[in-house]
Amino acid sequence: MGAQFSQFFPGKPTYTAANVGSQQGKVFIVTGGYAGIGFELTKILFAKGGKVYIAGRSEEKAREAISKIREVVKDSNGGALEFLHLELDDLSSIKASAEEFKSKESKLDVLWNNAGVSQPPLGSVSKQGFELQLATNCLGPFLFTQLLMPLLEAAVPQADTNSVRVVWLGSQMIELSAPQGGINISELFNPPKDKVRTYTTSKVGNYFLATELARKKGGKGIISVSLNPGAANTSLLRNTPWMKVLSLPLLYKAELAAYSELYAGLSEDITMEKNGCYVVPWGRIQPIREDLANAAKTKEEGGLGRAQEFWDFCEEKTKEYM
């Protein structure tokens, strides 16, 4: 319980923009980078000289965010901000987004799979008919990451050691609410009429995708991590205003949660030996719940093999859109 208490009340951040050196020459994507935690993260990366692509469905919101960031950041140290159209709930559109990025860049240093949806109206589905949270939080990011893998691999020879990464956004709900083993595979095909349960499933899914990608691509120099960014007062809670009111004493500024993502994406603490690790607020590596860690291990490693099952599920559901 102490591990959970420290995530509810993390104390002062020890990894902030002050710890980040120049990011000139680096290329980043932050999905959902025009609002909330993603906006704050984008602002830091831009101020450090990075070229940041804000990926999302609304160009208008992205342009507004870019204007706000440029107003606040007086010296970007050579940084750049770009919009990349991306609709994570429409698998048929994601390849075009990846191709657009490839037409502009030859490498990708860090991909932050930051965008997500939380507890939309019961019965909400994606363009392809998948439960909306599973589609937006897992299937879309999985496909987008797979399509961008050649550019992540291309960044490795040019990058500092351990610096090419994929970051997956989880939640404290993973440890507080997930069933033993993290996911009931049958629920992927027949989602329960419980939007909290399906949200938790999608966030455990992000953790599993992070550990599987670390296993599959660590040998090629790519680090993959997941995190609980911390409870932030953002628009993610727009579908549950009652929850926002009840949890207000535990909500923090989005800037603090952005430090968790910043740490996951850039901290030198995260090495290849810690590939697949789990990050908690406001930037610390911490062991995840034991049964979840066991579920992420392969059966050959003595684990449950649930992460591999979830990866295979995502691969099967997205293969026609590759």
Score class of each variant (00 low, 15 high):
residue 28 F to A: 04
residue 79 G to P: 12
residue 321 Y to E: 03
residue 186 S to K: 15
residue 157 P to E: 09
residue 56 G to I: 00
residue 242 W to R: 14
residue 27 V to D: 09
residue 112 W to P: 10
residue 218 G to M: 06
residue 97 S to A: 13
residue 229 P to T: 11
residue 319 K to T: 06
residue 22 S to T: 15
residue 288 I to E: 02
residue 212 E to D: 04
residue 21 G to D: 05
residue 32 G to C: 06
residue 297 K to C: 01
residue 199 Y to K: 02
residue 196 V to Q: 14
residue 21 G to V: 13
residue 124 S to P: 15
residue 19 N to M: 09
residue 143 L to M: 04
residue 192 P to D: 08
residue 222 I to A: 01
residue 230 G to T: 06
residue 70 R to D: 02
residue 305 G to P: 01
residue 147 L to H: 04
residue 59 E to K: 13
residue 241 P to S: 00
residue 108 L to E: 12
residue 180 Q to C: 07
residue 224 S to H: 03
residue 212 E to T: 06
residue 142 F to H: 14
residue 33 G to V: 00
residue 17 A to L: 15
residue 70 R to H: 08
residue 107 K to Q: 13
residue 115 A to E: 06
residue 220 K to F: 01
residue 268 E to S: 13
residue 188 L to D: 02
residue 238 R to D: 12
residue 292 L to Q: 04
residue 304 L to E: 09
residue 10 P to N: 01
residue 310 F to I: 11
residue 232 A to Y: 00
residue 7 Q to H: 02
residue 264 A to L: 05
residue 141 P to L: 12
residue 72 V to K: 11
residue 79 G to W: 00
residue 43 K to Y: 07
residue 7 Q to N: 08
residue 83 F to G: 04
residue 67 S to H: 13
residue 308 Q to D: 06
residue 188 L to F: 02
residue 311 W to Y: 15
residue 180 Q to P: 00
residue 48 K to R: 12
residue 157 P to Q: 15
residue 48 K to T: 13
residue 233 N to L: 05
residue 124 S to W: 05
residue 64 E to A: 15
residue 145 T to W: 04
residue 90 D to G: 05
residue 167 V to A: 03
residue 168 W to N: 11
residue 318 T to G: 06
residue 36 G to K: 03
residue 2 G to W: 11
residue 281 P to H: 02
residue 247 S to M: 15
residue 290 E to S: 15
residue 93 S to L: 12
residue 106 S to G: 09
residue 246 L to F: 15
residue 92 S to K: 09
residue 164 V to S: 03
residue 256 L to P: 14
residue 93 S to P: 13
residue 13 P to N: 07
residue 3 A to K: 10
residue 310 F to M: 11
residue 70 R to A: 01
residue 199 Y to Q: 05
residue 244 K to T: 13
residue 100 E to G: 06
residue 309 E to W: 07
residue 51 K to L: 11
residue 13 P to H: 05
residue 271 T to K: 11
residue 184 N to P: 00
residue 88 L to D: 05
residue 26 K to F: 09
residue 222 I to Q: 02
residue 68 K to M: 04
residue 187 E to M: 09
residue 313 F to Y: 15
residue 215 R to E: 00
residue 252 Y to F: 09
residue 72 V to T: 15
